[in-house]
Write a protein that binds this DNA or RNA. Structure first.
Length: 558
RNA sequence: UCUCGGGUCGUCUAAUGGCAGGACAGCGGCCUUUGGAGCCGUUAGUGGAGGUUCGAAUCCUCCCCUGAGAACCA
């Protein structure tokens, strides 16, 4: 079993520690992850999932999965299913506690009736425009609705009629009677029910009135016995409202809302609306395009759940807005893949090499380790013969002064095989290099006793045995750190035109023919790659998950 | 402009009146049959001005910067 470092503490855990000490919630810790099923989950949700489920795990508590489905016009079962899959894939489990806010529609309705009876809510028959007009502004107080003082009986009657479908969409709303002059505009008699004659993905046409978030959320939390209702910072201003409903209904054992800063990652966007735009307008191939910051995109790209959980622990939880550098995510990924991904040799851009002093028909079996970080992953055999392919980048006709690889008259080691020397550069009539003629030193077979040392070691594949494959090389989707930073500019202006490069004639070790979708490998010296789900027996397709760190690129730049 | 938040190395995050620490990135070195990994070392920060205190990132005052809030969205 691998060592597991504990999740670092944070201000939310401090609050829970204090609540436990003062016995605020009778020693209970119960959280929830409440996505709206109107889009796919992304890495920002992963932060929240790790936070909520992680707290439940560490405090011996529970975490519910709850779909916040109070707006039938935007929500779909497709999203429900993807969300379930993604949370599970991340490694979390809700047992039998998968709920929907729509499960509580009847209770929520009954609570609303109680508010009306207590004179704390009323039916407003203003139009949306009138509502807006009466709301006032940030600096000026609002005006009370002419319907504000309807009798309890009239309100009850109207609310029932609303529920029974007697009115058209938008003609009436139920509003909480709070304070039209509050500096917090959310408290200026917020709408808590609206008429929407729309089919709901779960309740069908049973309801034609639907509760608003601010009303449904605290009550759903209360119904489920949530103790700590953790959400992102933009809901901070909603907290007085959250508390108001619990107070107005005189509910005991109230949950407590705590806000933290959502994740922003450099070179990407996290807005569901914008991600949807990328999908719908075809900038990416779908929600699971490997360039998307969605969980399904990251999964297809080759990210591991472990790496995402470690990332979540590493970035911590706080209240200040932050833009986390994506290299931190990539670090967590490489850290995990380095330990677990088997090594293999693959040549992305092949350059033929003929070893002129090697016997024509000879084939040798070379021994290679599958993972130097973990010898329990075993060894494999590599065929070596007279004709091989190396990476075009591993040869320079006029070498940079710090270039340690192959160049005319120079020696380099072929990993797990021999040291070779470049004797001749063969070109076509246009001057393109077509092949290299090299000689090998038979004394330098890998594992042998030769003391000969060379500066560079390169990867290769044997021409006869290698098989063809396609590689998809991904780069960041945007060219700037914060594509949404400039309100004057559309984020799509910053899409990286080179975010995907497809290479169709890579050569890989024959063993890889067995690879299955999702299998992950390190292509030695190149990076981590995984088999794409669209890969077929005929054509293996590899997604480049992430490159290896490249200190040569830095030297070359200087 | 009003209300509520938030400002600590380049980035993320600790320090809860008592040595400003960690991670990533960077830089330098060691090691290496992956220019990978690993190991060692190192650079770098409390938005500003006052005040309280033996002592302030932390408490107080003012200023500056920044985020959120005027959907029948969540």
């Amino acid at each position: 079993m691998e060592e597991k470092t504990a999740t670092p503490s944070n201000f939310i855990r401090d609050i829970i520690d204090e609540d436990l000490r003062t016995n605020k919630h009778n020693q209970k810790v119960h959280t929830r992850f409440p996505p709206e099923p109107n889009g796919y989950l992304h890495i920002g949700h992963a932060k929240s999932i790790c936070l909520n489920f992680g707290i439940a795990r560490d405090y011996n508590g529970l975490c519910n999965l709850r779909f916040d489905d109070t707006n039938p016009e935007k929500e779909e079962v497709e999203y429900v299913e993807s969300i379930e899959e993604d949370v599970r894939w991340l490694g979390f489990d809700w047992d039998n506690r998968m709920f929907y806010a729509s499960d509580y529609f009847q209770q929520l309705y009954d609570f609303a009736v109680k508010l009306i009876k207590d004179g704390k809510a009323y039916i407003d028959s203003s139009t949306a425009d009138e509502l807006k007009e009466h709301r006032g502004t940030i600096t000026e107080s609002g005006k009370e609705s002419p319907y504000r003082n309807r009798s309890v009986e009239e309100n009850l009657e109207l609310f029932l009629a609303m529920k029974d479908g007697k009115f058209e969409d938008g003609t009436h709303t139920l509003r909480a009677k709070i304070d039209m002059s509050s500096p917090n505009m959310l408290l200026r008699d917020p709408v808590i029910y609206r008429i929407k004659k729309a089919d709901h993905h779960r309740t069908g046409d049973k309801w034609c009135i639907y509760p608003m978030y601010d009303y449904a959320h605290p009550l759903s939390d209360w119904i489920e016995g949530i103790t700590h209702s953790i959400c992102t910072l933009e809901f901070e201003v909603h907290r007085p409202l959250y508390d108001w409903f619990l107070e107005a209904l005189n509910l005991e054992n109230r949950p407590q809302q705590i806000e933290f800063a959502r994740l922003n990652l450099s070179y990407t966007i996290m807005s569901k609306r914008k991600l949807l735009e990328l999908v719908q307008e075809g900038y990416v191939s779908g929600w699971d395009d490997p360039r998307m910051p969605t969980i399904s995109g990251l999964r297809r790209r080759g990210y591991t759940p472990e790496s995402i959980r470690n990332f979540a622990d590493r970035i911590g939880v706080a209240k200040r807005d932050a833009l986390t550098d994506v290299v931190l995510l990539e670090y967590s990924l490489r850290e995990d893949l380095n330990k677990h991904a088997p090594r293999t040799m693959a040549v992305l851009n092949p350059l033929k090499v003929i070893i002129t002093n090697y016997p024509n028909d000879k084939t040798e079996e070379m021994e290679a380790v599958n993972n130097p970080e973990d010898i329990s992953m075993g060894k494999r055999k590599l065929s070596f013969s007279k004709e091989i392919y190396i990476e075009q980048d591993d040869f320079q006709e006029v070498p940079h002064k710090k270039f340690h690889r192959l160049s005319p008259g120079n020696e380099v080691r072929l990993k797990y095989a021999y040291i070779i020397k470049c004797e001749n550069v063969i070109k076509d009539e246009k001057g393109n290099i077509t092949e290299l003629h090299c000689t090998y030193d038979p004394e330098t077979r890998s594992g042998g006793s030769s003391m000969k040392k060379v500066k560079g070691t390169i990867h290769w594949v044997s021409a006869k045995q290698a098989i063809k494959a396609e590689a998809r090389l991904y780069d960041r989707l945007f060219t700037v750190e914060d594509p949404s930073a400039d309100p004057e500019k559309d984020f799509k202006e910053f899409i990286n035109p080179d975010s995907l490069k497809i290479i169709t004639d890579c050569l890989i070790e024959p063993e890889l023919a067995m690879a299955k979708p999702g299998d992950k490998f390190q292509f030695e010296r190149l990076g981590y790659f995984c088999v794409d789900p669209l890969s077929t027996e005929k054509l293996l397709v590899f997604n480049r998950t992430v490159t290896l760190r490249d200190s040569w690129a830095k030297i070359e730049k200087k």
